[in-house]
Design a protein around this nucleic acid. Sequence first.
DNA 1: TATGAATGAGTTTTCATTCAT
DNA 2: AATGAATGAAAACTCATTCAT
Lengths: 202, 202, 202, 202
Amino acid sequence: MATARSAAAAAEKRRVILDAAVRVFARQGFHTCRVSDIADEAGVAYGLVYHYFRSKDEVLDTLFLERWNVMLDAIRETDAQPIPAREKLHAIASFIVESYRHDPELMKVIIVEVTRAANSFGQTHLAKIREAYELIAEIVRKAQQAGEFRPDVTPDFAAMAFYGAIEQVLTGWIFDVLPGGEEDLEQAKRFVVETICGGLDQ
Amino acid sequence: MATARSAAAAAEKRRVILDAAVRVFARQGFHTCRVSDIADEAGVAYGLVYHYFRSKDEVLDTLFLERWNVMLDAIRETDAQPIPAREKLHAIASFIVESYRHDPELMKVIIVEVTRAANSFGQTHLAKIREAYELIAEIVRKAQQAGEFRPDVTPDFAAMAFYGAIEQVLTGWIFDVLPGGEEDLEQAKRFVVETICGGLDQ
Amino acid sequence: MATARSAAAAAEKRRVILDAAVRVFARQGFHTCRVSDIADEAGVAYGLVYHYFRSKDEVLDTLFLERWNVMLDAIRETDAQPIPAREKLHAIASFIVESYRHDPELMKVIIVEVTRAANSFGQTHLAKIREAYELIAEIVRKAQQAGEFRPDVTPDFAAMAFYGAIEQVLTGWIFDVLPGGEEDLEQAKRFVVETICGGLDQ
Amino acid sequence: MATARSAAAAAEKRRVILDAAVRVFARQGFHTCRVSDIADEAGVAYGLVYHYFRSKDEVLDTLFLERWNVMLDAIRETDAQPIPAREKLHAIASFIVESYRHDPELMKVIIVEVTRAANSFGQTHLAKIREAYELIAEIVRKAQQAGEFRPDVTPDFAAMAFYGAIEQVLTGWIFDVLPGGEEDLEQAKRFVVETICGGLDQ
DNA sequence: TATGAATGAGTTTTCATTCAT
DNA sequence: AATGAATGAAAACTCATTCAT
């Protein structure tokens, strides 16, 4: 019992550090913050960060992989559904927007510090990031074969356009370039699919 | 005469440093490279970088502003043309793709180190970056008023989707996630407009 | 009974830690290894090392003193024997060589980390180390008085030469500079005495 | 001229740092001292140490190699002389003793921190250290062939005994275990050769 | 006795920037 | 304009030691 309690307490501290890191990374940026900022924010001793993580990098890696894997699962699950491709893309867009609504700081960190900071961390996680593109491309490919989508735009390209559009919208919210109220978030789910699938043309 | 010559020589040295910085930033990333790397790549002495630029940041600032202003001018010029919105967007996409073809390293630097590194440099240049979004949004807005584009997707949103799609495609080329051969570049110009304007739907 | 048993168990654990420390110090060096390396090697928890020893230093201290005292006793015992000085020196050389044969890792630790690391641990144990030199010097002194050894080389000097020669040979074995097979060990016992007592001259 | 002067000044600063390092290493030991101690002792800024040396290790490496190479040259030169082996060994012993007389701190550093700290630095410089042993062994080998030395003690072993004896004597001086006055130094040159060549036997 | 989480001081190294020449 | 030596603040990371359980 004592062991169970302390094991749980240990796991909690790890979580506390990860959550603090999200806030610090979001506020100051990964490169700009110090490990001591994370420890301070978490209310733990400096060295404890290194007890649970090999390096500052590993903290970000952990944060990214945790969330990205959830998203990959969500995409796979969506794709398994017997629904039109348009609805699949809508579900994916919804998932991403909801992720942002639920924890905008975490999404800011993942997008700004990993996905788009393609040099350092992007390179490390390129394979993982690419998985998402490929899953989306696969949805497009099947939709083209089924006659749902036009066949001339390559699936890879379409996937990048779709994902890029959403990510840019999140970036817009993150940096206050785009209004990010509750309604805007809802609207965005529709808009991105309308734009990519329906097109802007009248 | 001597003064004119040395002034020209000075300007050239400044250029040499900037061009070297592009290669170094593209190869190693802004945060990872040292000022001495730039000096070495340019074949000049360490301190000379500080003769022409106040700081390492200013080198990147200069690089970004030089190119971004050219793009803003190109967008404005395009918008001034009496052509359909679809063609305007095609011209913008073309300009960006051509910029990449002409100097992929510079575009990599601008996208990866500035546009997408929104925490550090993005913040500094947010206003400048936003200008581009607004010019594009304006094109969409006028097209909606003219009945060329559907009125339900907000112009701001559409601009972000359009720009995000292109930037993601460039990122795909930069990190070899998308094939970036000559034909692919040409195709991309059409695809992005087809996708955003025509939509993926059959 | 239970107390006796656990006291014995405790003593065993202490021994397990000491033996593990020998292997770790020999492999990685005292400065380079961490306390956790010792605990891991011993298969005990981190904190247990601190239950039995006040500090990392104390572990090495213990190891050194254990062995060094055995050697001092052996030298004293040898000196008490009614045998020629030459045989006494042979007995001492034998003892040291046998110590190496029996536990080369322990001897490596004592020589490399204590005896020769005179700045850090050597200083602490200098008095203890000096005892050995003095015992040997005493043997030489008496041999000179008895007419066994030439009187012109001072005993202190001779003791250092003798001890230095042996230690250097062990060092040679430890670092594979000298062949350290079974026969080489036997030979060394004779050679060192032949060299120091008989001299290299024909 | 200005360039020549500053180049000379630069070289001097490097020397100033090396000399300061000798004093600091001798006083506090390599592991115990901080790089800032070296900088302070040299009266230069912290970073300048890293301007001239890649790491703290490299400072010690430089110090060792500088001196060790001088000694190797001295041994080679001695060996080239047409003199008896006994005189060659005397010359080598003299050289080492004189090195100590001239700069005892440097010799302390080389012996205590490199030659005898065989784990870290010794390993690195083992090949270089071994060269000395081999040169001495070669002298012995030739003396045996010429009938100067008895043939039964292997040259490798004799070299180790000879070198070990000298080094132990220096160690004795360094740690005040052996009297190290001017006369003692002179005496030592003879004693070590008398002991190793003539033997202690009456 | 045994565990291993928690602490935080200490040190190396990096590198942007300055400045004397 | 050009050089590169000199400066020193800043930060990551290590690890011996403590302590609650």
